[in-house]
Amino acid sequence: MASPRHVPVLLDRVVSLLAPALERADGAAPDGRTVLVDCTLGLGGHTEAVLERLDRVRVVGIDRDPAALDLARARLAPYGDRFVGVHAVYDEIAEVVEELGLDHVDAVLFDLGVSSMQLDVRERGFAYAEDAPLDMRMDGTTGPTAADVLNTYSHGELTRVLRDYGEEKFAKKIAAAVVREREKEPFSRSGRLVELLYAEIPAPARRTGGHPAKRTFQALRMEVNDELAVLRRAMPAALGVVGVGGRVVVESYHSLEDRLVKQAFTAVTRSEVPPDLPFVPAGSEPPFRQVTRGAEKADADETAQNPRAASVRLRAVERVHPSSPGVVS
């Protein structure tokens, strides 16, 4: 098996956004330490930086990928009980927090999309550069694979997936070719799919916008792992578990992901008071404030060193008021 590499995106900026919530003296843990939930632990790059730089923090790392969890636990073992890894999907954050005996946390981090762990281990089937089984499950122990999607979805369903999740202009044409070719032999490996994409995407389009398989592989991965539906459930759950002064920080890499994050953040930072009212009545303040101005992006230097940073959009909010009896300060 190939060894995965891990280059966290916007690492310093992410830690600086989390720090004000994690350096407080009255944290969410029983001993007063602050608690971060890293909802997309991966190989633990962001978590390691937080544990190393902020010594009062405990981190709960969530990942649906058992292989990534094992590697992260080994990497973070030197930090002892300051780190705990949990096998779960990140929309289960409220349940994870409750099971750990916490009534709130101080910060939540999401680094969405596919991780280095999945991209760099050929056997997982996420990458299009090498021939591999068409799996793409973040949790390889459960659920349908990318091959199942290709071999069972109708032409219309495949077109929807490729168009909506991959923003693929030739979605209908590619879907028709998949349906035609699977009648000859079911799809099982990525190499055959890449060959089909080279054949179906016109040459002028292949010369722009990166690898011609990029959009289709992204779309299949998002469908296999139900990523948008999970994120749609996870955002309000994450916002609900942070106490006053707590922050939620999100890195997204796809326009649909960023749109969901933006909508969730706008909903909790927008005042419902009429704009012509001269004051905001007590109890009518929005529960959160925006920390970032819109979505922040990686600069040219970071993008040159780490191409995965090119599409990142970083947003953060901070809870300033409780919005329900269950949220504490």
Rank of each mutant, 00 (worst) to 15 (best):
P8H: 06
R182G: 13
G326T: 06
A2L: 04
S188T: 15
A25N: 08
T152S: 15
D65Y: 10
R180F: 05
A316K: 06
S3P: 12
R24I: 10
L112I: 09
G294V: 03
S252D: 12
S115R: 01
P20Y: 06
V37R: 02
S329D: 15
G283P: 14
R206H: 04
A88T: 02
R313Y: 05
L158N: 03
V149A: 10
S3D: 12
N306S: 07
V224F: 12
E168C: 05
R192D: 09
P186C: 09
V179M: 01
L277V: 14
T208F: 12
E181T: 01
Y153A: 14
R189N: 08
E157A: 15
P307N: 12
L162E: 07
L196G: 13
S3H: 09
V242F: 08
L71R: 15
A234G: 06
A282S: 10
D111W: 01
Y79E: 00
L119I: 14
L256K: 07
G80L: 00
S115E: 08
V121F: 00
D38N: 04
R315V: 03
A67G: 14
P204F: 10
R247Q: 09
T142R: 13
K262L: 05
P30C: 02
Y165G: 07
Q218S: 04
K169P: 14
G191T: 06
E183W: 00
A146N: 06
A234Q: 13
P78G: 08
D106I: 01
L71D: 11
F265L: 06
R24V: 12
E23R: 13
A229C: 01
A205E: 14
T216N: 09
L277Y: 13
A107C: 02
A129I: 07
A147D: 12
V317N: 05
C39Q: 09
G294N: 12
V241R: 00
V327A: 11
S255C: 04
E23I: 08
L314Y: 06
R75A: 08
S115Y: 03
D276R: 13
E48P: 05
T47I: 08
L22H: 09
L76M: 05
D258Y: 12
D31N: 14
S271V: 10
L69W: 02
K214A: 15
S115M: 03
D226M: 03
L36H: 06
E98R: 12
R308V: 01
V280E: 15
A238C: 03
D38Q: 09
E200M: 12
T292D: 09
R75L: 08
T216D: 03
T216F: 00
E130A: 15
A77Q: 10
P275E: 12
A203R: 13
P236R: 10
R64D: 06
L18N: 02
G113Y: 02
R122C: 10
S154I: 06
G326K: 07
L109I: 13
